[in-house]
Design a protein around this nucleic acid. Sequence first.
DNA 1: GCGGTATAGTTGCTTGTGCAACAATAAATA
DNA 2: TATTTATTGTTGCACAAGCAACTATACCGC
Lengths: 149, 149
Amino acid sequence: MGIKDDAVEVRAQGWRTLAALHGLIEAELERSLQAVAQLSVVEYTVLDALSRQDGWHMRMQQLARATALSASATTRLVTRLEDRGLLTRILCADDRRGIYTELTPKGVDLLEEARPSHDAALERALAGAHEVPELAPLVDALPRLHARV
Amino acid sequence: MGIKDDAVEVRAQGWRTLAALHGLIEAELERSLQAVAQLSVVEYTVLDALSRQDGWHMRMQQLARATALSASATTRLVTRLEDRGLLTRILCADDRRGIYTELTPKGVDLLEEARPSHDAALERALAGAHEVPELAPLVDALPRLHARV
DNA sequence: GCGGTATAGTTGCTTGTGCAACAATAAATA
DNA sequence: TATTTATTGTTGCACAAGCAACTATACCGC
């Protein structure tokens, strides 16, 4: 087994670890968000992304990228949230193909209501993952990516 | 903003980064595996997990954990692969509730055929992700988790 | 051994997702 | 300006996923 093969195997193992941790966290968030706000993880992701956006509006395609979803899934996701009154579609004046989505006050409220639960669930999930030997190193590495210090 | 709030935000950002990278990689693998072997990422994950198992057999529940899938999804996933002749169900002698799944020679062949393409796609995805500033640190951290040196 | 509880896996049903085809608008080219 | 080409978002369709309910087997206390 040469150096090159090692690199391949190391990448594969890294990916498996990443996928496993992702799965754990997503499951925990899903349970938590569903319980507290009847939101799925992607739905929360949309609301959160919009809330961290200047003016609280984003275009469909930005949303698709932010959620790693297809265009069609994004359309229906936005429709779903719009039907619940959590955001609104706003036609784009300068580019009439484009559509902005914007949080409604109700959307902001629900997000603020869900956020503490989300954050707690994330913390729980990471703590739980840290107990799994294969996942612990990644859990430790994660906060170092963006730490201020 | 206190220290505690910072920790929450750091975790959230770490999670967003993890999810984004996961999405990119999964999409790239999906395309690649679909093209070369008509396999989805989870399907490949099952075959790969079985191949790295002594005796090439696993129980349904192990598989469910390895793929981060529900029990019912696992049942149908295994059924799908069984219908294609890539693995077989084997009744467990000592625990008659349990069911082992085992790769068939055909399954091994397909896996070996798909693996190079999978590994290349993974490498491409990581290289691509490395170009995205927010993702680069995580991409760099990944191979260090399990590196031999 | 016998009833109650826990565990393993499967099935019905509903829902979210991706792909491909589409409509509408913008941008490029002649 | 007219025509092609690219981009943005939406819809029809097929399929995979989760939840809850179910069957079958194992385990535990009596």
